[in-house]
Design a protein around this nucleic acid. Sequence first.
DNA 1: CTGCCAACATACCGACCAGTATGTACGTTA
DNA 2: TAACGTACATACTGGTCGGTATGTTGGCAG
Lengths: 217, 217
Amino acid sequence: MLAARKSSERIATKLLRDSGRTRERLLQAASREIYRSGFQSASLDTILAIAKVTKGALYYHFKSKEELGYTVVEEVIAPNVRGKWVRPLQSGKDPIDALIGAVQRIPVRPVDVRGGCQLNNLSQEMSPLDAGFRKRLAIIFDAWREAVASVLREGQTHGSVRRDVEPAEAAGLLIAMVEGYGSLAKNAQDPKVMKAGIRNIVDWLRSLRAPGNRRRG
Amino acid sequence: MLAARKSSERIATKLLRDSGRTRERLLQAASREIYRSGFQSASLDTILAIAKVTKGALYYHFKSKEELGYTVVEEVIAPNVRGKWVRPLQSGKDPIDALIGAVQRIPVRPVDVRGGCQLNNLSQEMSPLDAGFRKRLAIIFDAWREAVASVLREGQTHGSVRRDVEPAEAAGLLIAMVEGYGSLAKNAQDPKVMKAGIRNIVDWLRSLRAPGNRRRG
DNA sequence: CTGCCAACATACCGACCAGTATGTACGTTA
DNA sequence: TAACGTACATACTGGTCGGTATGTTGGCAG
């Protein structure tokens, strides 16, 4: 108990002195700069300028640029994907409706479309070059696919999703479509491409509904 | 006539001295190194080492790294895409068969899958950062989509493709699927992902066939 | 034989890169 | 209050980058 009190005081003090945010500011700045220009081309000096942090602070919290990148994957990108593609599917709603909702919530502002998908960008760049990135990014992709497959399986047991749909295959196809249209839209630098893609994906999702289970349109 | 003879002699001499290949070797080496590590991270010194050419020769033929990259797009990547996705569709075969053939000819060797798509790789990296790349790459994507849309339209007039298919939309979806699965496979570094994707794309292509026009399977 | 130019080759440059060595302010502990 | 460790800040390093300035070679015209 005394030890516990000491420990909590210690943490409180740390948070006070640190403002509790140097590490977090570094991760956010790194995430943004990596998103903008890729991991390899992201300059530490640029990241430090964005975060308004010095090199000493960076290398106090992370032992290398690589480790900073890994931490961005684990503490920024992974939670983002979970928040958009895992938790919303566990809402208990109709599976197809939940999936359509997630697809329709894909950002289509010009700035988002032009930048592409955080997860896919980094994965495309680093998966072939660095096993540490590949492993961490693969975990995110797997969780994404499993969340989609899981909600489809659940829909099949409740009769709202066609039985002839193979959940794992359909989940892979959904993700391929999302990333594929994301790529095309980024390449074209045009939100219209993404909007058209979302319509096509939604149409396809509707085709997965079991007959006699059609809801709204 | 005398001028013409002089000129051809001159070219022959040039080719002899040059071995006719310094520029070509540079383009091939640049293409490979850009494919491997991206344009920004591709080092000129590495490209020169691969091509066995010196910096003087490089800057005699190209005025900057940027121009070298642009030329790779125009003289290496564009012909590759034309050879795989434009010419094969103009063969006069059944449109759906031609499309299925093109999809099934997508390379699935580990080395190809791990490296991803030349066109998409470069486009993902450079389209948001450089208008020169974006313009040149967009031309290739447009030609690809137009070739697919064109063969679908042709199929509709001949009755082999469903009339309710919107050729431009379907072409976009095909490309999104191809690039999407290519991305997933590259991310996973696993040819099985690409093979599964090809099966799904082929199944989808078959669904575009007009009823009563089913050929083999 | 001579001057000339295309087609390189070599040596070098300042800028920037990731990373490090060292200094320091400040809250805590004894 | 003195020693100490945390959480940085500053200044610097060797290496690599794209790009350039200058040298060299060899065929060919005059």
